[in-house]
Design a protein around this nucleic acid. Structure first.
Length: 765
DNA sequence: AAAGCGGTACTTTTT
DNA sequence: GTACCGCTTT
């Protein structure tokens, strides 16, 4: 039973068997972290700890599922199934459903996803007649999210002098009011957003000592994976739950912290040391995953970060090949080079497709890669991107489900009241919303008795609303009479969605139909899955299915094991925790990776660097870095330069495979970023001619003459010079500010449309 | 009230 | 390139 301990090295074994008291494991990339976590759980079980006394919190659903599977292999499926293992959000959503009445929520509360939250905020901003640029919904939501993650309630927010003066200074004094209104509306809709799941768990543990005591007793052993990615709210939940037994084990790697943008707080590692002064720390520094070249190259990059916990990741593995660096002229060339390379490696070495992964910074980059792979008939699978659950048709169907389960769910109501079109338009909806806000009731209640709430509308409209409500109530009455699949199918039929999707045969519509059918087959799957406890088939209702579907992402859909020999395409964020023999990191260009939005602060830049570190350390055999000198972005063509991260790699571990090192001296990268910064600061005024450092070489001297011009500085007929295209004449200047474009006819290159915020031109007088 | 049009703004990463 | 807004027309 415990012979698996033999497979561990010394620090790993200690991290597994030191079960009592606080433990921190600092686990370098590829150091067997997952193995330690799974073995630790298995070890606890072998020591007689009951599975339902173990709480293991992971960062993604996928990580939880995989860990559960591995534990099941060690200790058997029945034990593994009773473990409390999942993401913070899913575990505490489950607990909040059980305890909902304490917090004044119904047990069937809805979980709003980011789209719902933004829509709600957008409505509020409009209602309050605020400018939706000063108060961009995404920004406001970010602000609220940040507050919640730091356990600042709407009331706290409005009463905090410092926050208020900060908002005043930013000329956004209404943020606090929006926060309050947003919370009111969530409550009216019986809904929680993602951050509320954690916030309200904290409220539960703070205000209900008997609940706190209950869960402290229940969760005798607590494990937290990816500790560096937890935020303050999560930290505090863990701290409270562990307060009694202090059998807490956190595992993390500061070098792989890539979620600070979402409130993750490396500070939590320091908090841990403060909270549990007698903690034990184990450092896993031996990398079993990658070659020496990969480990060393990754170390050389991360060394540029100032914020670090000291550790020395090393490996016994063979040296391997150097990191390959490839320059391509365009993103299309980059993509075809990668797919050619995969094709030949696969052929020459008889490798399966699944040995390859292509990583990128942003989802938008997947398109050209997909095209290139398709062209060569290389099967691939995209992880992430637009989630299945984010598709419009899927959301529409799920909005019906949500409304049936929770009639107060306002975002769902809004979505489907007139979909498929049934003659209830904006005017009517606006009347109902005004009345609902006045009366403090949900839309559904107001719609049910319009006269009572003083809404005047035509009798025809009233009849339509009435029959919509009758339909929804009818579905609701069958929630526990029909199983999830039967009811789902009935809803799709009776709501008119199915008819709507069969109205025409456009490819999009066919695709939508397939997606809806896929949702139905997921429901079918759900109802035929036997009970975990008894193994017997059981009745499963739609609300049970919907419970945590809001917390699922595409990555959580189980894949078909018979059909998974595919090249993986995903963002680096999505690749965290995974490994592949051959990894291609594409689009390693300045302003893309690191992202343009991050280059102004050291903290953000360091996060990008950690991201690059994560990307490199996914590779077992070989990592290849590619960049393109030009790329389509925002629908227009622009030029790119290799990322600073390439320069930061120790030259001993890299090799230029195609194209050779960048021709331009590094100096120029800097002057470009400088001028860009200048540009961002003052869009209207041209950058000062003398801001750049004195050029060191003649190439740089020439390059410095090319500057970013504003639309106002150019007019039709002007002669300009471009570094690559040479001399040309401006045909027309369109747009203004950051969108200004110029069409220029170059001698020898023809007509080019240039986005002025990217193009560097020299104006010839 | 619905559908069709043109203009605009937005594009980082995820539970 | 695309999603979404607000306008216009039917």
């Amino acid at each position: 039973m415990t012979e698996f301990l033999q497979q561990l090295n010394e620090p790993q074994r200690k991290a597994v068997t030191c079960t009592e008291g606080p433990v921190m494991v600092i686990a370098g990339a590829g150091s067997g972290k997952t193995r330690v976590l799974t073995y630790r759980v298995a070890w606890l079980l072998s020591q007689g700890v009951e599975p339902f006394n173990i709480l293991a919190l992971t960062f993604t659903n996928k990580a939880a599922r995989e860990m559960k599977e591995r534990i099941a292999q060690l200790v058997g499926a029945s034990k593994a199934k009773s473990l409390w293992m999942g993401t913070f959000h899913s575990i505490f959503a489950r607990i909040l459903r059980m305890e909902a009445d304490k917090l004044g929520f119904p047990q069937n509360f809805t979980i709003y996803d980011t789209t719902d939250s933004k829509r709600l905020l957008k409505g509020l901003i409009k209602e309050q007649e605020l400018d939706d640029k000063t108060y961009a919904p995404g920004f406001v939501l970010g602000r609220i999210s940040n507050a919640k993650n730091n356990l600042i309630s709407a009331q706290d927010y409005n009463e905090d002098f410092e926050i208020q003066s900060q908002d005043q200074a930013a000329r956004k004094p209404k943020l606090g009011m929006l926060y309050s209104l947003y919370q009111q509306r969530l409550r009216r809709a019986s809904a929680m957003d993602f951050d509320d799941l954690l916030f309200n768990t904290n409220v539960l543990l703070r205000d209900f000592p008997e609940s706190l005591y209950h869960y402290q007793q229940k969760f005798r052993y607590i494990l937290v994976d990816e500790y560096q990615d937890t935020n303050f709210s999560q930290y505090l939940i863990v701290k409270k739950l562990a307060a009694n037994n202090e059998n807490i084990c956190v595992v993390g790697d500061d070098a792989q912290s890539i979620y600070a943008f979402r409130g993750a707080n490396i500070q939590n590692i320091l908090n841990f040391k403060r909270d549990y002064p007698d903690f034990q720390i184990f450092k896993l520094e031996q990398n079993y995953r990658s070659t020496q070249n990969i480990v060393n190259a990754a170390n050389s990059v991360i060394a540029h970060n100032k914020d670090q916990i000291f550790k020395k990741v090393w490996t016994d593995n063979h040296q391997g090949e150097k990191i390959h660096i490839v320059r391509a002229a365009s993103e299309a060339e980059e993509a075809s080079w990668i797919s050619e390379r995969i094709f030949s490696l696969r052929m020459n070495q008889q490798l399966p497709n699944k040995d390859f992964a292509i990583l990128y910074r942003t989802n938008a980059q997947s398109r050209s890669l997909e095209e290139a792979l398709r062209k060569r008939n290389i099967p691939y699978r995209i992880f992430g991107g637009q989630s299945f659950y984010d598709r419009k048709e899927v959301k529409d169907v799920m909005a019906y489900f949500r409304l049936v389960i929770n009639p107060n769910d306002e975002e769902a109501f809004r979505r489907v009241i007139n979909f498929p079109a049934r003659g209830i338009g904006q005017t009517t909806l606006a009347k109902m919303e005004a009345a609902a806000t006045n009366a403090g009731k949900s839309l559904f209640e107001v719609a049910a008795s319009p006269l009572e709430y003083g809404i005047d509308m035509h009798s025809g409209v009233r009849t339509k609303i009435e029959s919509f409500l009758v339909m929804i109530r009818g579905f609701a009455a069958q929630l526990y009479k029909l199983d999830a699949f039967e009811l789902g199918d009935k809803i799709i039929a009776q709501s008119g969605i199915r008819k709507h999707l069969f109205e025409d045969e456009t490819p999009e519509n066919i695709n939508r139909r397939e997606n809806v059918e896929e949702l139905l087959s997921a429901l079918k799957d759900f109802v035929i899955t036997p009970s975990e406890e008894t193994g017997q088939p059981q009745f499963r209702a739609l609300d049970e299915y919907m419970q945590d579907v809001a917390l699922l992402t595409d990555a959580d859909k189980k894949d078909d094991p018979a059909d998974n020999d595919k090249v993986s395409l995903m963002t680096i964020h999505a690749a965290k925790g995974l490994e592949f023999p051959y990894v291609f990191i594409s689009g390693v260009e300045e302003n893309l990776f690191p992202s343009l939005l991050s280059i102004n602060s050291r903290q953000e830049l360091e996060e990008e660097r950690r991201l690059f570190y994560v990307a490199l350390t996914r590779a077992m055999q070989q990592a290849t870095i590619t960049y393109a000198e030009s790329r389509f972005r925002y629908g227009s063509f622009n030029f790119c330069e290799p990322s600073r991260f390439i320069d930061e790699l120790d030259p001993n571990f890299i090799q230029y495979l195609k194209g050779g090192p960048a021709k331009k001296p590094q100096q120029q990268t800097q002057s470009f970023s400088e001028s860009r910064k200048q540009f961002m600061k003052a869009v209207q005024s041209p950058p000062a001619a003398s801001h750049a450092k004195p050029p060191s070489g003649s190439a740089a001297a020439a390059a410095d003459d090319f500057v970013i011009l504003t639309g106002a500085q150019l007019a039709a007929g002007n002669r300009v010079q471009h570094q690559r295209f040479g001399m040309g004449t401006v045909d027309v200047v369109e747009g203004s500010g950051p969108d200004a474009k110029a069409t220029v006819t170059f001698e020898g290159f023809g007509k080019k449309m240039l986005l002025l915020k990217f193009a560097r031109l020299k104006k010839i007088n």
